[in-house]
């Protein structure tokens, strides 16, 4: 089935202001890991992308950011077309070359070392992974600490990535190289930059 441009879900209504507002939300999330932030900008969304992930794409993706999509998104031709049309970002097959990755099925998230981890000289040249999760308000509790967090904060979330705490612990060992995560559920987002210590709360 072909989607014509006329049938494609819209982007931001006011590109400049919506991008600014979304960016500030993502920036606040990144500066305060574990805090749940709400994306207010409205845009069309190609299923199975979530509103928050779509807004992040419209705000941060462009021709200079190769994007990798997991199978669930890549097999939906609409998502690829929508990303290419609205952001001009190249959608690539090799995750190691990606600036951003979008994951719709957290259970099949590839190992972090399949993505770009940056180099010791340029640790910023690493993939930011946007993961669509079931909930950022209910689910198992995690204790988070590190830069951006006043002591310890607790996040309740149904993330669905197997062994996430172990993977993040391994990620922390690579510092300053590493992956940064943006968790999205609907319009809510939570950032887990590489500096955040993330442990499942006992009991």
């Amino acid at each position: 089935m072909m989607t014509t441009i006329a049938e494609m879900p819209a982007g931001f209504a006011d590109k400049v202001i919506a991008a600014q507002s979304t960016f500030r939300t993502v920036m606040d999330a990144m500066a305060r890991p574990g805090s749940v932030q709400l994306i207010r900008a409205v845009s069309g969304v190609p299923a199975p992308m979530m509103r928050g992930a779509a807004a992040i794409a419209l705000t941060l993706f462009d021709q200079d950011t190769p994007v990798w999509l997991d199978e669930k998104l890549a097999t939906s031709g609409d998502v690829i077309k929508w990303i290419k049309f609205h952001t001009s970002a190249p959608v690539i097959a090799d995750a190691a070359g990606s600036s951003f990755a979008v994951i719709a099925d957290p259970t099949s998230l590839p190992e972090f070392d399949r993505f770009a981890l940056g180099s010791p000289e340029y640790p910023d040249r690493s993939t930011t992974i946007v993961i669509q999760v079931a909930s950022l308000s209910e689910g198992p509790a995690y204790r988070l600490s590190g830069p951006g967090i006043d002591g310890v904060t607790v996040l309740r979330a149904a993330i669905g990535v197997p062994d996430l705490a172990d993977r993040l612990a391994e990620n922390a060992c690579r510092f300053p190289r590493g992956i940064d995560l943006l968790l999205v559920s609907g319009e809510s987002i939570v950032a887990l930059p590489r500096t955040t210590q993330f442990v499942a709360q006992e009991g």
């Binding site: 960016f23 990144m30 705000t59 910023d124 500096t195």
Partner: peptide
């Protein structure tokens, strides 16, 4: 807007790697 996106991406990486010059 393209320049802003580029700067915004740099800011996010800068926050993720405190003190590192992006």
């Amino acid at each position: 807007e393209q320049t802003k996106r580029m700067i915004r991406r740099a800011i996010l990486k800068a926050i993720a790697i405190p003190g590192y010059q992006v």
